[in-house]
């Protein structure tokens, strides 16, 4: 149920995003979802890709600092209130979200929300019990 995400450290310099995506493209790696967190001095690019291990290796070979973390991906109905329901559960159970980002699927019926929790195991159990639909890594990498 846990999905692997890679994170890349970026200095605020022009062209760095293009270099990362270029490296991934050259190595046939497809990006599934991404989000960029930025501060005044640096950025952190988070990516879910079809092949985490290769992506990590090629980026490292190209001199980037890369980390791997685990996140949860929850499917919600793509309609008003779809996300609110899940957040309600998270709030009631006092789960702390480090950060989150979202993307919609081709079908347009459901949206996928990616959550990074402090305590991922507890969050996973709670959300499963509450009936949320958590996607497996294989499902996400193959989207």
């Amino acid at each position: 149920m846990k999905v692997k995400q890679i994170a890349v450290f970026l200095e605020n310099k022009s062209g760095r995003m293009a270099e990362i995506t270029g490296v991934l493209a050259k190595n046939g790696i497809n990006i599934r979802a991404m989000s960029l967190a930025d501060t005044a001095d640096f950025g952190i690019l988070r990516l879910i890709v079809n092949d985490t291990e290769s992506a990590r290796n090629v980026l490292k070979e190209n001199g980037f600092t890369v980390g791997t973390t685990e996140v949860l991906v929850i499917e919600v109905m793509d309609k008003p209130g779809g996300l609110a329901g899940v957040l309600q559960i998270i709030s009631e159970n006092k789960l702390n979200i480090e950060y989150m980002y979202a993307f919609t699927q081709k079908s347009g019926e459901t949206g996928l929300i990616i959550f990074r929790f402090d305590e991922i195991d507890k969050a996973m159990d709670t959300l499963k019990k509450a009936g949320c639909h958590l996607l497996t890594g294989e499902e996400v990498y193959a989207i």
Partner: peptide, 15 residues
Amino acid sequence: EVSEDLFSDAVKTLE
């Protein structure tokens, strides 16, 4: 320099 040991995917940790 940010080594792999220092790096985190969370902004808070780096700050």
